[in-house]
């Protein structure tokens, strides 16, 4: 059976618009395979091209070289089988909560009654029933993330692409959201690519953690299976010996890259 998502030797080189001789290779020769129902986290130092990789998987960005396949089919244009949760706020500010949640259904021409019915069901599932009439600016950061989650999941995508979705939240809200994500995910186990710079978050959520090297031209330098049992509580699992063991192992491999990434940033 074909994997849900496969990136095969993908490289992305950006040209400077003002000066085409200025080029920047964000990702180089990256191969990433995500099986069906697998929760994979991609970690790496800041500026290592994690988002670029995700945009390639989403079809928002065409790779310079390499191939992208979704369930065995080559990807052309937007990846319609994937849902994308962005790092920054991506809700339409002129739509209230319920209208944002059902936007995707509306684009697909689902009747309004049915869309609203599903929308309200999803609002309830993410703990926001009664907030349907609020506009995004009237919601807290955590609530906006819940809306974004419902907006993505209502379309029942087979692959979830998540770009540091909780990085802007405070620690408590973040752990709450992580647990909710795991709970929602456990219902039908979609394939997930979860981008983060937080190793603890990556380990506590995932089946597998992929470590990227520091940019430019970053590529995977480690691939670790996480054999922690599910269901998990992200706050509690961090205290188990096995978690600490895995964390130590991956952190040793990452440390050097993080320092490299830091030095790289200092130069700029």
């Amino acid at each position: 059976m074909s994997p849900a998502l496969s990136l095969d030797n993908v490289s992305c080189t950006f040209l400077s618009r003002d000066d085409p001789s200025q080029r920047y290779t964000a990702v180089s020769d990256t191969t990433l395979i995500v099986g069906e129902g697998e929760f994979v986290s991609v970690v790496g130092p800041t500026g290592c091209g994690k988002t670029t990789l995700l945009n390639v998987a989403a079809g928002l960005l065409a790779p310079s070289t390499g191939h992208v396949k979704i369930f065995g089919d080559p990807l052309a244009g937007i990846n319609s089988r994937a849902g994308y949760m962005f790092q920054s706020d991506a809700l339409m500010p002129w739509r209230n909560t319920i209208e944002n949640v059902i936007a995707g259904l509306e684009f697909r021409g689902i009747t309004r009654t049915e869309a609203l019915e599903q929308g309200n069901e999803w609002l309830q599932r993410v703990g926001l029933s009664g907030f349907g009439g609020r506009y995004p600016h009237q919601l807290s950061g955590g609530m906006r993330k819940r809306v974004a989650l419902a907006q993505m999941l209502i379309l029942n995508p087979q692959i979830l692409l998540m770009d540091e979705p909780f990085s802007a939240l405070d620690v408590q809200t973040r752990q709450l959201m992580e647990n909710e994500l795991l709970e929602l995910w456990s219902v039908d186990r979609k394939s997930v690519v979860f981008i983060t710079h937080d190793l603890e978050e990556a380990i506590s959520l995932s089946d597998r953690v992929v470590v990227l090297s520091a940019g430019p031209a970053s590529h995977p330098i480690g691939d670790y299976a996480i054999d922690l049992q599910r269901p998990r509580d992200v706050a509690e699992i961090r205290l188990t010996p096995r978690f600490i063991e895995i964390h130590t192992k991956i952190w040793r491999a990452m440390k050097e890259e993080v320092l490299k990434g830091y030095a790289q940033q200092q130069k700029h």
């Binding site: 937007i78 339409m92 995707g104 684009f107 697909r108």
Partner: peptide
């Protein structure tokens, strides 16, 4: 128009016509 909002609408399956109606026009309002 916020590029993130635009990318999000595209990921949610908006056609070019729908992008105009549901993203560009309200954003320019």
């Amino acid at each position: 128009v916020s590029p993130v909002v635009l990318a999000n609408a595209r990921m949610l399956g908006a056609t070019p016509g729908q992008l105009l109606r549901y993203v560009y026009v309200p954003s320019a309002m």
